[in-house]
Amino acid sequence: MSPGTVATTLVLSFICLATTASNILVFVAVGYSRNLRTVSNTFIVSLSIADILLATVVMIPATLNQVYGHWVLAQGFCSIWASFDVMLCSASVLNVCAISFDRYLAIISPLRYKALMTFRRALLLLAVLWIVAILSSFVPITNGWHNPDVPSLVNLTMFTSEAQCLLIVSLPYALLAGTITIMLPIIIALVLYFKVSEEARRQALFVRTLIAPSRVLLGQDVSSKSVREPFTRKATVTLGVIVGAYVVTWTPFLITNIVDAACTCVPPKLFTAFVWLGYCNSLINPIIYPLLMRDFRKVYMKLLLICCPRLKFLKKKSKEVLQKDIEKAFVNGHSQSNGIKSDSV
């Protein structure tokens, strides 16, 4: 193998392994902590299912394609692999859309949220999303509707002497599938995100008007930023990062796929790069949770301490050092204040 092939193998293998492990950790965290078994986290678990399947069923064969330069698996698996590729990418963005809708209900109707979004309704919504993803992938691809002018995917040697598995779609299918499974859900997720952001700001301003008189009497700062920020950050940052990450990672592929279906003028390496950029979204999602969601962060820390007991000693030691530093700073400050008083007297 050339150095470039070795580097590509290592990078893509790391992406596959890290995506699988990080999303499995989401399952472990939800199974370990009863506090994480909420209706909202049902959508996160569903997103992790899509990401795990994408990392194993889709990304591993895609890695083999890049390493060997041709299709090395069974011919019959080619159409199945291509169908899973489209289905899981569609399911991922539809789950992001469902997360946005769930957060929208929680912010717009906080008192009625538990009645509106029950576990049964959440599972029903997820079932509909997965059915849409299946109907937009397996049905047209296995029947050849994705491109009637191109031979079946089973004919793996239509371009080179070596076996190839290429999903070449027609422009109508690229527009229809891209609009239904990627573009429309992204637009809905963005609209819901901005609705959530506006509602969070409105509620923060309402709370500010209620507590402002008491703050004035107490002589405290009542600037809009100091009062509004805690409310808006908790309600919008996590959702904004999830939606933003999906837009950044999948929009280039959406545009490139439509352009390539229209003119067949996109360089293969560029097209493949945008495909893998979209795959990387499945790695980003489980990283967002511990960074921005306190409940997941606490459970991850507990699991880390269980797996690595030695970290408990380091954590305890750091707390002792921090406590000593605080006590030392307090003593020094107290001594300096006494010195100032004695000098002034």
Rank of each mutant, 00 (worst) to 15 (best):
A127C: 11
L111N: 15
A163Q: 00
P151D: 03
N65K: 10
S90E: 04
W71D: 00
P110D: 02
A62E: 04
I108D: 15
G69F: 11
S137P: 09
C89L: 08
D51E: 08
I52R: 12
L129M: 02
P172D: 13
Y104W: 11
T56P: 08
L73E: 03
S136Q: 06
D149G: 12
W71H: 01
N65F: 10
Y68D: 06
T118S: 08
S48E: 12
S79G: 04
L88M: 08
V67N: 05
M59A: 11
V169Q: 02
D102F: 14
F159I: 02
S100Q: 07
I80A: 05
K114P: 09
Y68K: 00
N95S: 05
V150E: 07
D85Y: 04
S100M: 04
S170T: 03
V139R: 00
Q66H: 05
R121M: 13
R120K: 11
N143M: 14
M117F: 15
D102S: 15
R103Y: 06
V128P: 12
I108G: 14
P148F: 05
S152W: 15
Q164C: 01
R121K: 12
A62P: 01
W130L: 09
C89E: 03
Y173R: 01
S170W: 09
K114E: 08
Y104F: 04
A74T: 09
P148M: 06
T142H: 06
Q75S: 14
D85G: 07
P172S: 12
R103V: 06
I49S: 06
L64Y: 05
I108M: 15
Q66L: 10
V72G: 00
L123I: 13
V139F: 07
A55P: 02
A115D: 12
L166V: 11
L156W: 06
A174F: 05
A122F: 12
V139Q: 00
A55G: 01
K114R: 13
A115I: 14
W81H: 04
C97Q: 15
L94N: 14
V96W: 06
L166R: 03
T160S: 00
G144W: 13
I80D: 00
E162F: 02
L73H: 00
V128R: 09
M59I: 09
N95L: 02
S136E: 03
M87Q: 07
C89I: 05
S136H: 01
S79N: 08
R112D: 15
M117N: 11
P110Y: 06
L105H: 07
L153E: 01
A174H: 01
Y173I: 05
T118I: 10
I80K: 01
L156K: 04
A62Q: 01
Y113S: 13
G76H: 05
S136W: 02
L153N: 01
T56G: 02
L156E: 07
L125D: 11
P148L: 07
T142Q: 06
V128Y: 10
F101P: 05
W71E: 00
V57P: 07
I168P: 05
R112G: 13
V93T: 14
Y113E: 08
P110F: 06
D85H: 03
A50K: 15
I49W: 14
P172E: 14
I108A: 15
A133Y: 02
P110M: 08
L64P: 07
E162Q: 03
V67F: 02
N65D: 08
V58W: 03
M87D: 06
F159M: 07
V67P: 01
Q75M: 10
A122D: 11
